[in-house]
Structures are given as C-alpha cells and as structure tokens.
C-alpha cells in the first residue's frame, strides 16, 4: 500500500475548480516530483493534503488513515511535514525558536535535542545563526531554515513546494543535494518544482500537472526523454 494516496481529488476556490479530479500516489522511500506551469494547481494540492484548504471531493489516505477531513493542525503529528511555498519562516522569531516551532507536537526533550543536533549538522549555517531573527536570513538560508524546521517534526514524508524558487544556481544545487540526502536517510519526499530538469534528476517518478489535471506520469528518467515534456518543461 502506498504511503500517500490521493484519489479523485477536487478542490475549489469559490466557484472556480482549481483541481479537477486528480489521483496519484507516493510510496515509502520514494522521491516523487509534481511538475507543472504557474497556476497548474501544485500548491493547491499540497495545501489540501496538509489541511490548509479542504477538498470538495475525493480522498487522501496517509499511512493507512483517511486524512481528508482531519483538522490541519493534526497532520504534522501523524508524520507529514510541509515546507510551504515562499518558505514562510517566522520572521520575528529566532532561528532557534523557528526550529523549536517545528518540533511543536513532540514531547520528548531528549529526542527534540537530537533532532536539533541533526539539523545543525546538516545545516551548519543555521547553527552559526541560531540567535538571529529568521527575517534577517538570506533567501537561501531561509529555505534551509524552512527545511530544518520541517525535519524537526521527525516526519515520515516531507512535502516541499518549490524549494529552489528565487535562489542562485549554487544554492539551487545545494538545496537539491540536501533533498537527496534527506531522502537517503529514510524520509519520503513529495517535491513540487518549476525547475523540472532538476526535479526529474532526483525523482523516482513524476506527475505532470496542467490546469488542475494530471496529463502525464511515469518514471522520472523516461519523462525526461519524453518529447512533450522536453518541449514544455525542459526548454529543449
């Protein structure tokens, strides 16, 4: 059984149908890429999965449980973290307090401390800046903080929404290396990206989204060689 299974999902903004009945699944240990142009509905899908908006129809199963109607604040405690579009770190809290917010649902002090050490090892820059207000970090550092904050919940799966957005090429490579590492250490990843080339290069499988519908899916390397994908998303 898939770790995350989305079935016939429909999402509306008022009367506008943004997601038009899509289905996909993510298996344990995979990196799944969800690619598509601006406004295709990628963010909407992630927001629906973690309960920031609610679905009109369809179902979302996570870890064997139906979470379609679960209140959003309970999702992270079930093992699903979300690195939202635009990072959304708490600008007026310190780096350290942001990381603690990531562990909000956890109780064991020792385990939280271990996670903190793990995050600091993975992102040494966060450790150097732990007392600094998150709003004063650079864009790339904020992205690292958003990822570190998500890791603080010790998730089984991480949903990431355009982690490379607005970053310089060096940072983009660093961020993708980190996503690979996070996955290698056992965390499943659902990755939304406009940088399709990079996303496909680290994904196992991918889904291509166009105006609320999945139009193509399959093995990431196969999609990379698909003519329509090349033309529309890889700029070749």
């Amino acid at each position: 059984m898939a770790m995350l299974e989305v079935k016939d999902l429909e999402v509306y903004y008022g009367v506008i149908k943004a997601i038009k009945g899509i289905s996909f699944e993510v298996n344990e240990g995979e990196v799944i890429a969800l690619i598509g142009a601006n406004g295709a509905g990628k963010t909407t899908i992630l927001h629906t999965i973690t309960g920031l908006i609610s679905a009109k129809a369809g179902s979302i199963q996570f870890d064997g449980k139906n979470i379609t109607k679960t209140p959003g604040y309970k999702i992270v405690g079930m093992g699903m973290a979300h690195v939202p579009e635009g990072r959304r770190v708490f600008a007026e809290l310190s780096v350290y307090d942001n990381l603690l917010m990531g562990a909000y649902t956890r109780k064991d002090k020792k385990e939280i401390q271990d996670s903190l050490e793990m995050v600091y090892t993975r992102f040494p820059r966060l450790k150097e800046r732990k007392g600094q207000m998150a709003g004063t970090l650079s864009g790339g550092e904020q992205q690292m903080l958003a990822m570190g904050r998500a890791l603080m919940s010790h998730p089984k799966i991480i949903l990431m929404d355009e982690p490379s957005m607005g970053l310089s090429p060096i940072y983009v490579n660093e961020i993708f290396d980190i996503i690979k590492e996070i996955n290698a250490s056992g965390t499943t990843v659902l990755l939304v990206e406009q940088n399709a080339k990079k996303a496909l290069s680290i994904a196992n499988r991918a889904y291509v989204l166009e105006t609320g519908n999945i139009v193509l899916d399959g093995d990431a390397t196969e999609l990379m060689n698909d003519d329509s994908v090349k033309k529309a998303y890889l700029g070749e």
Binding site: R88, V89, E92, M101
Partner: peptide, 19 residues
C-alpha cells in the same frame, strides 16, 4: 511561542501543529 507564530502566519503555524 505558538501565539507569536500565529500572529505572524497562522497558516504556517498550523503546519507546525498549532491549533
């Protein structure tokens, strides 16, 4: 801290597990 987080960004706070 949850109050501060909600005052800054309620959606992000909810993603952290804040009711």
């Amino acid at each position: 801290r949850a109050m501060l987080a909600v005052s800054e960004d309620g959606g992000a706070a909810q993603l952290m597990g804040v009711n």
